[in-house]
């Protein structure tokens, strides 16, 4: 009989979100491979809450997920490195990072926990502010910002910002009423939440992007091992194809954001090499330092990532 796998993620389904499209593509390709395998997709947290997906996939209760790995950093502190300011920089470097020793270490942790990566994905993000352009660290001083990710919050606090945590759906109202001066989130959210209506300046990812988040497609190892060799091959092939698709589309997404904001009359800037280095210096004193203290072998992990050209 047909084996049915459950795939879960937190992103809107059928609305063109690339992470949803990746999973849909995998489901289509696996079905086309004709290996008695069907993938049911549960988008928009309709099965598991975002944070609960890790436990479920490593236990074999959930078969597949598109998962922001940092969400599991409370259980595996190493994962904080996948949402660490300034560790990636740009898309080409992200690609090189995937085959580096750094990611080999991370993937080892994933596998030991009971899951495996079938498609790598690094998502880029931006900054926007109502006050002015966020470039060097002192441009953020005294602003209330909603940041995405604890390691970022640590660095932003070190830059003298005040943090307000809220779900991304509240950022719009937050910026409008003035609870927030600035926001940091993924490029996709910057477009879909229409923050250009309240932002004065957008800091686009460009060549020196601070914010990157690793959101791979994971498969439960327990489940994978139960599949036939043909089924396993079909899944791996579909994953590889989805990864290539993502790499192409994610760049278009950044361009779409820049165009949208320019059209709305928002100033769009990028960080210069000096700005980026200043942030990196700040990150070294805050997030990197905390990470090295908290995680065994943490400094070595960061060094491996920074060593990638």
């Amino acid at each position: 009989a047909q084996t049915v796998l459950k795939a879960s993620h937190q992103f809107p389904g059928g609305k063109g979100d690339i992470r949803d499209e990746m999973v849909q593509m995998i489901a289509r390709d696996v079905a086309a491979a004709d290996v008695d395998l069907e993938i049911q997709i549960f988008p928009g947290s309709s099965l598991y809450k975002p944070n609960d997906q890790w436990n479920a996939v490593t236990r074999g209760l959930l078969d597949m997920t598109s998962f922001p790995l940092d969400y599991a950093s409370g259980r595996h502190p190493e994962f904080s490195a996948t949402l660490m300011p300034g560790l990636v920089g740009n898309f080409d470097r992200a690609k090189r990072l995937n085959d580096s020793e750094f990611m080999t270490d991370i993937k080892k942790v994933i596998e030991d926990a009971g899951a495996m990566v079938i498609a790598d994905a690094w998502l880029s993000g931006a900054f926007a502010s109502k006050q002015g352009c966020i470039t060097s660290p002192d441009t953020l001083k005294g602003q209330v910002i909603r940041a995405a990710g604890p390691a970022f919050e640590e660095m932003l606090v070190a830059a003298g910002a005040s943090i307000s945590s809220m779900p991304s759906s509240e950022i719009y109202t937050g910026m409008q009423t003035g609870v927030l001066d600035a926001a940091n989130t993924s490029s996709a959210s910057f477009v879909s939440y229409r923050l250009f209506e309240h932002a004065k300046c957008l800091t686009a990812p460009g060549e020196n992007a601070l914010w990157f988040m690793y959101e791979p497609v994971l498969v439960s190892k327990k489940v994978f091992e139960r599949l036939t060799p043909e089924q396993q091959k079909a899944i791996l092939a579909a994953g590889e194809k989805a990864e290539a698709f993502f790499d192409e589309e994610v760049r278009k997404g950044d361009q779409l954001m820049v165009d949208t904001y320019k059209k709305a009359g928002v100033e769009v800037v990028e960080m210069s090499k000096e700005d980026y280095d200043a942030w990196l210096e700040l990150a070294k004193q805050s997030s990197y330092k905390n990470f090295a203290e908290k995680v065994e072998g943490g400094d070595a992990l960061i060094e491996k990532a920074l060593a990638v050209q």
Partner: peptide, 9 residues
């Protein structure tokens, strides 16, 4: 197996 996720949910 579900005993592992009842509490989480």
């Amino acid at each position: 197996q579900i005993f592992y996720i009842l509490g989480d949910t």
